[in-house]
Amino acid sequence: MTDSNSRISISVTNKRAFIWEVDDIAVIRSKYRICGILTGTLPHVSQQNVFLGVPLSLMPEEVVLLVENESAVLVDDPNAYPEPSLEQITEWDSARLESIQKQLNITESLKHASSLNTRSMSEEAIRKRRERKQRKTIPAEETEPSLKMSMSGHPVHSIVIPASSSSTKWYSPGTCTYASIDSAKAAGIWDYPSNLHERAKCGVFRSLWEQGYFMGGGIKFGGDYLVYPGDPMRYHSHFTATVIDSPLSALQPMEIVAHGRLGTATKKAHLICCWDDKKKEVTLMSIEWGGFG
């Protein structure tokens, strides 16, 4: 479908898959209808759990689908960090010093600009300045960068902690990239799907995804997946899906009652998805409360 250069890199650590690049997150969401779950702390709004940031955690079914469709490759992340050479560290350090200098220049020029403004400061400007001070967005030290020194000997500046490693010069995923599930399994970094139940889950996931649905984890609704008619960001899910491993699996009447009850209570229909491992086919059945009397 696509050449391996335009494929998305999925970082695999301890058999768990993450996406670290925001652009990649955007592509798999809008192009491949794969949502994943954001699990990282969002910088600067780090004391809440409502909105989270990178990395994006992928369900193993999502990973299998993306790799099988040749949309993504797996990267063995722990082995992608060879020890940097002295030159690389020196280069990194000089880039760091350069960025500090740049920041200081900007602060300096801002200070210069503000001192120019002071001469012809209108009443409006004075009021604004006072407001700004009250909001404390600008610490007092900033105006005299030469007086306050930080420990490192440089004036106060800001330090960036990068989220993804793509900007790191010595990050080399090239040597440990796997383009198929089998090669990744052989390398021992991935093991999904490894049994009938996991194969059934992958099959059901793929089948519903190919019908144009968005899929999310359904654990909070008592199923394996939530099935959305569009992007979960905008639309409610219509179904909670449960995966049945084989057409011969026994289904308890109590399960049907429980699923029907739960689906009705959450305004969803429960979807029983039965996987036939021989024919590689999925049979879908939905349960809804009849509502007679």
Partner: peptide, 10 residues
């Protein structure tokens, strides 16, 4: 929101 850089003062 995801692109916001992780910065901190020295």
């Amino acid at each position: 929101a995801l692109r916001a850089t992780r910065t901190i003062s020295s």
